[in-house]
Design a protein around this nucleic acid. Structure first.
Lengths: 124, 124
DNA sequence: ACCTAAATCAGTAATGATTACTATTTTATT
DNA sequence: AATAAAATAGTAATCATTACTGATTTAGGT
């Protein structure tokens, strides 16, 4: 276990306790409940550090902000362009890691995104 | 075949004639060789329109700009964090479309990204 | 414990890719 | 040809993210 600062540790715990794929400012609002005077720059810096480490996932779905995921294991992200939600879904196969290996590419992180409309929005 | 404006048609042809996944301003610089007084806003608007249509792919690899791909068919993107290049690679299976179907999610576009280091950068 | 250097922080200012806006031009339809 | 709708060039505004600065905390050595 790495020796993280209180700020970084808190950010990581928040990300691991949700499946909402929050943006940096959403994370900021949550962390402030625990560390009221944390700065937004600190949140960005630690999100970048955790993402560089491969501990969290950073994903962009084209809605203007970066989203973060405390689960960095390979899984699918289903982004509904109607309600904006990002759903997690398990994958039967990690085809990206396999493809990387076949191409002599050192895979560190894999990101799977589907754009479309979720079942809830379809029925509304 | 849709009836595209000269600007949109030119942008699409440029994207289809390269595999470099250019940014909006890189596309802008290319289009200006053909339509010198095209505006950057027009490039952005048409890239968004083509992306909404599913004719091109818009992908973010975390380097600050959006990248565009004239090939919207499912394939892998290998992003080297060392040289910054995005390599295309074929996929044996479109696992994302399958996963979407299993989850009653209407898939329109799929994006596959691997982050890591390419063979060229490894050998340098 | 003390000391020093490195890392991290809070707070604020700056950046720059993207978007919004407006007046003009082009396209489509009748 | 007349009218309405769509697209454009050019410019101004936005705002998520990054950079910066001086203060604070952490880590390792003595």
């Amino acid at each position: 276990m790495k020796n993280y600062s209180r700020q970084r540790e808190t950010i990581l715990q928040i990300l691991r306790s949700t499946d909402t794929h929050p943006s940096a400012s959403a994370v900021y609002n949550e962390v402030r409940k625990v560390i009221p005077n944390i700065s937004l720059g600190t949140v960005y810096r630690n999100l970048a550090a955790l993402s560089d480490e491969g501990v969290i996932l950073s994903l962009s779905v084209g809605d203007g902000y970066e989203h973060f995921d405390g689960n960095s294991a390979p899984h699918a992200h289903l982004h509904c362009k109607c309600c904006g939600k990002i759903y997690d879904a398990p994958l039967k196969q990690d085809i990206l890691s396999e493809t990387a290996k076949e191409n002599d590419f050192s895979s560190e992180t894999t990101v799977y995104i589907v754009y479309g409309v979720c079942s809830k929005c379809k029925s509304d």
